[in-house]
């Protein structure tokens, strides 16, 4: 999954472009340094607009927010509902069938109370062609997760505290679960830098993850759109079954919880094209 690690040397050369999230509309085209071949022949040399719909699923249907009951269950059969969902994706990446990748260096903040945030038109125009898959970074990678660097996110208070490693939140997934006494209790699953307070001094580990969406091959020959689906229950299982009785709130200072979200996150997202 760590596709960007495999092209680290290219990244180093491209760091200026990569860390700018505001104004670069030109695609960043990269090739793996070991590969000289680029055999894709494109008759259509146009670039097209990609529109991403951010959708959220729970129990195989569209997520229902603020329900009075607890309609969803995690892998430990604990019932829960969702009252808040905000998250951040960045560096949407298109993989050509050869070794070329196209990275849009922007980021996008999703808040389910703001319907316009559910659509993300990336700035980079995507060249016509056949792509083997689409990916993105959940949260910010280490080049981009710079404390205070994004005014819109600062304004929202989306910062991750410096004492826990700084940068920004990647996820706020909140709701209520039925605890071991069958009483409704709140959980606040916040994700960002994994900070370990048991170490002296406290250690902080980067905690974003790269997603290559399964079955996300697509052919681009016109402006296009696709869905990135978040499957809510997957945050709480596969491989680590999340126990709301143990990890409800706070989880920001708990390194193991942060890493569990990272591990579980790899199966959270799916691709869909109409």
């Amino acid at each position: 999954m760590n596709f960007k690690n495999s092209i680290l040397s290219v990244l180093a050369l491209s760091i200026l472009t990569f860390s700018s999230c505001e104004d670069d509309n030109e695609p960043v085209v990269m090739q793996e340094p070991m590969s000289a071949k680029n055999t894709t022949i494109l008759n259509d040399t146009s670039n097209y607009t990609a529109t991403i719909n951010l959708t959220q699923l729970a129990n195989n249907s569209a997520l229902r927010m603020n329900t009075t009951d607890h309609p969803y269950t995690n892998a430990l059969n604990q019932s829960f509902n969702v009252t808040k969902l905000q998250y951040l994706i960045s560096d949407v990446t298109f993989f050509l069938n050869d070794s070329t990748i196209i990275v849009d260096s922007g980021y996008h903040y999703v808040d389910l109370t703001n319907s316009t945030s559910l659509t993300y038109m990336i700035k980079t125009k995507i060249p016509a062609g056949t792509y083997s898959s689409v990916g993105f970074t959940f949260g910010f990678d280490e080049e981009d997760n710079i404390s205070g660097a994004y005014t819109d996110l600062n304004t929202l208070g989306w910062n991750w505290p410096a004492i826990f490693g700084g940068g920004y939140h990647f996820l706020r997934l909140e709701g209520e679960y039925l605890d071991s006494n069958n009483t409704s209790a709140e959980f606040k699953t916040h994700m960002g830098t994994a900070s370990d307070g048991s170490a002296m001094p406290r250690t902080n580990e980067i905690n974003h993850f790269d997603v290559i969406l399964p079955n996300s091959n697509l052919t681009v020959s016109s402006d296009f759109s696709f869905d990135i689906e978040m499957n809510i229950e997957e945050w709480y299982t596969n491989p680590i079954d999340w126990d709301f009785n143990v990890w409800n709130a706070p989880v920001m200072p708990i390194s193991a919880a942060q890493k569990a979200l990272n591990s579980n996150g790899s199966s959270v997202f799916t691709f869909k094209q109409q």
Partner: peptide, 20 residues
């Protein structure tokens, strides 16, 4: 630090951060 720490004061989630 108390202000900023979830699990301690945890004031910042509602009252903002230095960058905010």
């Amino acid at each position: 630090d108390i202000f900023m720490a979830e699990g301690s004061g945890d004031c910042f989630h509602c009252h903002g951060t230095p960058f905010q």
